[in-house]
């Protein structure tokens, strides 16, 4: 089909649209970003660095990294597992499962946090049992990890499902007839086929796990130096009028977010290239 341009906007319309969207982006995205770094470095590098010698700040950074290190591998594994299950097999309840995957996206993070309080809190379903064995989940590190796992779960599965559906079963079946075992098929055929999509999903999971505030703040209990992740600690610092330190920590998180976005952009390029090579395959 030949694309026909029905509407040909005059130059002034284009210019106006460009100016409006440019101004919007500047005010709501660029300006806040600049502000974070400007505020963080306002009193010089020495003061900036001082923030990071605060043991509370350091433990918040450590806790955030620990959470990411636990959540990203687990969600990657189960994301691949579930995407595989839902795209390669047909079974009753499959549609329901696909919908359930989106649940962490669709419910508010606060409710996600409350869910874990209801489950593991002292008056929750498993509360009494946990007390008996002296296991603390809520208002402790396990609760933070669980809440983060919950909110960052869908990314990998969501990213892989359309890709795997598009790829179909042919490659795996071909490997099967050539004598490959299930393990070999996954490592040598499936994984290379989905690697860019998988990395993209991992990056998004990482971003969400690092930045999650709502769900984590509900289960955290704000025990300083124990259950405060980076976003929570920024909130604490700000609440105590320690603006320099709050902005310093915020600038570190922003920096990590920028790295993530750049990685994502690079990956998008590779994914587009892969799609293109798939198109060639289908056309001829």
């Amino acid at each position: 089909m030949v694309k026909k341009r029905v509407v040909h906007e005059p130059l002034w319309v284009k210019t106006l649209l460009f100016l409006i969207s440019g101004a919007f982006l500047f005010v709501f995205i660029v300006l806040p970003l600049v502000t974070i770094f400007r505020e963080a470095f306002k009193s010089g590098i020495a003061v900036y660095m001082e923030t990071f010698s605060d043991p509370g700040v350091m433990s918040a950074i450590k806790l955030s990294l620990l959470t990411v290190l636990i959540c990203v591998p687990i969600n990657t594994f189960f994301g691949v597992f579930i995407a595989w299950l839902l795209t390669k097999y047909r079974f009753p309840g499959r549609k329901v499962l696909i919908t359930i995957i989106d649940l962490p996206f669709s419910i508010s993070p606060v409710i996600a946090g409350l869910l874990f309080i209801f489950l593991f809190g002292s008056f929750g379903w498993f509360g009494a049992w946990l007390m008996e064995y002296d296991i603390r989940i809520v208002f402790a590190v396990p609760g933070i990890v669980l809440a983060t796992l919950f909110v960052s779960f869908p990314f990998v599965a969501r990213e892989l499902m359309p890709l795997m559906r598009e790829l179909g079963k042919d490659d795996e079946e071909a490997a099967l007839t050539l004598g490959a075992s299930g393990f070999q098929i996954f490592w040598k055929v499936t994984l290379p086929n989905i690697k860019w999509g998988l990395l993209y999903g991992i990056i998004l999971t990482n971003a969400r796990a690092l930045g999650e505030f709502g769900a984590v703040s509900v289960v955290s209990g704000f025990v300083r130096g124990v259950t405060t992740t980076m976003p929570l600690y920024i909130d604490i610092l700000y609440g105590e009028y320690m603006f320099r330190a709050a902005f310093a920590l915020a600038s570190l998180m922003t920096f990590l977010a920028l790295v993530t976005i750049i990685a994502k952009a690079v990956l998008e390029y590779y994914i587009a290239a892969q799609r293109k090579s798939m198109e060639v395959k289908i056309q001829s």
């Binding site: 490659d171 071909a174 040598k188």
Partner: peptide, 26 residues
């Protein structure tokens, strides 16, 4: 059995040589 698929199902991340060698290498 050797199976030739309708849409070939070649491994797109492997060159011709590696595609053919796959069944032996695994």
């Amino acid at each position: 059995v050797g199976f030739v698929f309708q849409h070939y199902a070649l491994f797109r991340h492997m060159n011709v040589f590696e595609n053919i060698a796959f069944g032996l290498r695994i």
